[in-house]
């Protein structure tokens, strides 16, 4: 145990070790050491380090720690690809009904089982929850523009996000097909064009790893700033109490 306390004492600043290490070791030879003394020594050493550092060093250290943690987190977030298709239609179409039908449990469940989506999650999560997740997070149907002048011309995008880019494209294609089928069955369209066929994404849509690292760096700098001011405040309070 004493070995661990001695190791913890290596974290004290070099100047402190030069002045106190010999007598600290001599004291340890006599003391009955407990586990909590290892943490007590480590805490003392780190506090001493922070108080001996200048503003820039504290800021830089915390910033780099924040960035390193964020980088580790960013690498653990699975990569996802988004495939998108853009369609334009004119004429009378019940878009709301079509969207509801496409995003219905029956329709999405068929897509999930047919394309073998979310294989790991399906082992321990009810299908209802997987469908809800797919509907809320992975499938997106968005209106793009509604130019004036023409009779009900609508452009919208259908996209699907998934860790496998080929499956992302295949599912988007399936959703577009279903969408057009329902539209043709329920509305009286004058035209329906696929402006952009389902894309094969080359670059991941998420996560934005640089963004996560930058956020970690920012939070680290903010923590460093807080620590630096807290230490400065503590030193001022101690000096005031000393006089």
């Amino acid at each position: 145990m004493k070995r661990w306390v001695r190791r913890a004492s290596y974290f004290y600043p070099a100047s402190w070790r030069k002045r106190y290490a010999a007598e600290f070791d001599a004291m340890l030879d006599q003391v009955d050491v407990e586990w909590k003394d290892v943490f007590n020594t480590l805490r003392g050493a780190l506090t001493m380090q922070f108080t001996s550092w200048n503003f820039k060093t504290i800021l830089l250290t915390f910033g780099l720690i924040g960035a390193a943690i964020a980088a580790a987190v960013a690498l653990r977030i699975p990569t996802e690809y988004r495939s998108m298709s853009v369609l334009r239609l004119s004429g009378d179409a019940d878009l709301s009904r079509t969207t509801t039908e496409i995003l219905s449990r029956t329709s999405l469940e068929k897509t999930i089982t047919g394309s073998d989506l979310y294989p790991v999650r399906r082992k321990d999560t009810p299908m209802e929850n997987i469908v809800a997740h797919m509907r809320m997070h992975d499938v997106a149907i968005k209106m793009l523009r509604l130019p004036a002048g023409e009779k009900n011309p609508v452009a919208f995008s259908i996209s699907f996000t998934y860790p496998d880019r080929k499956l992302a494209q295949a599912v988007t294609r399936e959703l577009v097909t279903k969408f057009t089928e329902v539209l043709l069955r329920t509305g009286s369209l004058t035209s329906l064009e696929v402006l952009d066929p389902p894309s094969r994404p080359a670059q991941p849509s998420s996560p934005n790893r640089y963004g996560v690292v930058f956020l970690g760096l920012f939070l680290g700098l903010l923590t460093g700033l807080t620590v630096s001011y807290a230490l400065r405040w503590r030193i001022v309070v101690v000096r005031r109490s000393a006089h």
Partner: peptide, 29 residues
């Protein structure tokens, strides 16, 4: 007092001039 707490206090007190080391006969000061 843990070793870290004790030597933290000794360091601060010496910096403020409230205690001073005296001649040591061995490693213990």
């Amino acid at each position: 007092l843990g070793p870290g707490t004790l030597y933290g206090a000794i360091t601060r007190l010496e910096e403020r001039g409230w205690i001073r080391p005296v001649a040591a006969e061995d490693r213990r000061r």
